[in-house]
């Protein structure tokens, strides 16, 4: 990667304009794929917004998120031709609405995530989003991407993000991650929204970028 250099805090990198565009496009494709499958499963039409790919540091991420906001998080570890972490987040209210839909309850009936049933319903939904997101990327590059079984948490947003970024910092000796984000929101008033975040390992990202450049040439 061009801008990759050894800094005092470990590896640091910047993306050039081409790399950013390419990754944005990739994020778009994968997000559409994932959210389409979400819409099919829930029967709710979704609007997708894919914000530009960002390189963020741990401190920077902290400032960008609602720290104590309760979210349902579904975490998947990726291995194979591409490795990293993938996190699907549903803010509290959206998580409750999704449980209503998935379990055939009245809108507004779910007020907590108390049972294992509710937890696994959300976990499966998150897992499905994660898998279709990965499938799209793997298809595009023709490499394998093996998601681990999902794990679930319903807790403060920053506690989850922090845990992942710290794990990444330790393994990769860097305090920056490339964040693919996808926001989706339903068209109706159910107020369902969520995020997909991909934290690629550096080697995988490097590999991905060189494949993208080769594609263009």
């Amino acid at each position: 990667m061009n801008g990759r250099k050894e800094g005092p805090g470990g590896l640091e990198f910047e993306l050039n304009a081409f790399q950013k565009d390419a990754l944005n496009e990739l994020g778009n494709i994968a997000s559409c794929h994932a959210v389409t499958s979400l819409a099919e499963m829930t029967g709710v039409t979704m609007n997708i917004k894919v914000p530009p790919v960002e390189v963020v540091s741990i401190e920077g991420a902290e400032k960008k998120i609602a720290i104590e906001k309760m979210v349902a998080g579904i975490f998947v570890q990726l291995s194979g031709g591409f490795s990293g972490y993938l996190l699907v987040l549903f803010p509290e209210r959206s998580a409750f609405s999704l449980i209503d839909i998935l379990m055939g309850k009245m809108p507004g009936e779910t007020k907590s995530i108390g049972t294992e049933m509710e937890e696994s319903a959300l976990m499966e939904l998150g897992n499905m989003l994660a898998s279709s997101f990965c499938d799209a990327i793997a298809d595009f590059f023709q490499f394998s991407m093996m998601p681990s079984p999902p794990s679930f948490s319903f807790d403060m947003m920053s506690a989850m993000m922090e845990n992942l970024m710290v794990a990444m910092a330790e393994a990769e000796k860097t305090e920056q991650v490339i964040l693919f984000k996808c926001d989706f929101k339903d068209e109706t008033e159910k107020g369902i929204y969520g995020y997909i975040m991909l934290f690629p390992h550096h080697d995988s990202l490097k590999n991905m970028l060189s494949l993208l450049e080769a594609e263009v040439k």
Partner: peptide, 13 residues
Amino acid sequence: GASMFSAMDSLQI
């Protein structure tokens, strides 16, 4: 010093 996801437990950060 928590481990937010069971998949991360083995790292024991």
